[in-house]
Amino acid sequence: MLTIAGRIFSSRLIVGTGKFPSSALMRAAIEASGAEMVTVALRRVDLNDPGDDLMTMLDRHQYVFLPNTSGARNADEAVRLARLARAAGAGEWLKLEVTPDPRTLLPDPVETLKATEVLVKEGFIVLPYMNADPILAQHLQEAGAAAVMPLGSLIGTNQGLLTRFQLEIIIAQARVPVVVDAGLGAPSHAAQAMEMGADAVLINTAIAVSGDPVRMAQAFAAAVKAGRDAFEAGLGVSGPVAAASSPQAGLDFLR
């Protein structure tokens, strides 16, 4: 079972709530995904047209709300957004995003680490979005991050696990859950991440913008489960299998 900050989740799929064609489809797709944690964003209310309230559309008892700090360009902005999220009633959970470069939306490692240090001290459960940098993962972990969220490839590119080799190191070294985020465009990408030993994946766009978000949510749920099952069962290995009949290989000296 996935455990983050002492809380147990039976689903290893975390989904976002953005970019859906309608609130009804969002609700249905999230339901179909089986996810127990959903990410949400914080924005100013348009006072002339308040529209639907997300907090009333999703059952707060069914889902853990994971507000993000999207839009923050430095640690100070992220900290302010985090405090607002808590004031808005989301609890202590926080997906920390600090993305100063509007073209790539790559996370800023220095500011992310700074913000993590501040927010952990303030009692937040911090899940930082980060580049797939193993050393940064170590620093974030030591700063008290409850999980790390390395990217598979650039946001919105649907390129899958381009950071595979670094992800492998992060997964091997981590003492907190590793949630792969960004770049996962297809269920097969999610399955690959899970087969590698990732603890969970976070998906939004691939579900929200598909022709049938509900079916796509089901597809991702199945892929995540399949990948995790394969990881736990132990994948077979490719390549030649060693046999006892190999020549002595220069070991004649042994007594």
């Binding site: 060693a242 006892a244 002595q248 290989a249 070991l251 042994l254």
Partner: peptide, 10 residues
Amino acid sequence: DDMLPPMAKR
């Protein structure tokens, strides 16, 4: 115990 040669190679 009989697999020492391939282990040594790896």
